[in-house]
């Protein structure tokens, strides 16, 4: 039956025309389309990848930011605490120092007062000694104008010396007693 026997004429035209169509389309048709679509899908893939990357980066940034804020908060708390501590410390130290200094100053002042007092006392004593020597000189000069008086004095001194050998009485006392006696 001629349905299942391929006809030569149609075979010929089919080979020729399909061959030409195949040649034209394989050269100028399909490669253009497929390469364009392939490059587009590559591009889409790339964009998706980049978007994913950007998202991950953004996520990392947000996380970092959060961490940073948390760190800052901790830092702030630490600094505040430290500041309070150091303030207390400074105040305490200042107080201590002030008290030490005050004490020292007081001590110093006391020492000086003492020293000056001693000096003053010594001065007064010296002055007094000089004065009393002068007074005694004058008195003596007055009194020793007479011979007998010189003698009685010498005698009395001699007495007194013998007494002071035993008692050791201070010179002042002897002097004052001498004055009183005279």
């Amino acid at each position: 039956m001629n349905l299942i026997t391929p006809d030569g004429g149609l075979l010929f035209w089919m080979v020729l025309i399909f061959g030409i169509v195949l040649f034209i389309l394989a050269k100028w048709g399909f490669p253009v389309i497929t390469s364009a679509v392939d490059s587009r899908s590559a591009r889409i893939e790339e964009s998706l990848r980049q978007a994913e990357q950007a998202r991950a980066q953004l996520e990392g940034l947000a996380k970092e930011q959060e961490e940073m804020i948390a760190r800052t908060h901790a830092e702030q708390a630490r600094i505040l605490k430290e500041a309070a501590h150091s303030r207390d410390e400074i105040i305490r130290a200042a107080r201590e120092e002030a008290s030490v200094q005050t004490y020292e100053m007081l001590e110093h002042a006391r020492e000086r007062i003492e020293r000056e007092k001693q000096d003053a006392i010594r001065e007064v004593r010296r002055e007094m000694a000089l004065l009393s020597v002068q007074v005694a000189e004058k008195v003596l000069r007055d009194r020793l104008g007479h011979e007998d008086e010189q003698l009685s004095l010498a005698r009395r001194y001699a007495d007194e010396l013998s007494v002071s050998d035993k008692a050791g009485a201070p010179a002042d006392a002897s002097e004052s007693s001498a004055k009183v006696q005279s």
């Binding site: 389309l25 100028w28 048709g29 399909f30 253009v32 389309i33 364009a36 679509v37 490059s39």
Partner: peptide, 14 residues
């Protein structure tokens, strides 16, 4: 097919 190919040639498929 050639018209389709022309579209891809004249447009940036991306």
């Amino acid at each position: 097919v050639l018209l389709t190919a022309r579209w891809y040639r004249t447009h940036d498929a991306g």
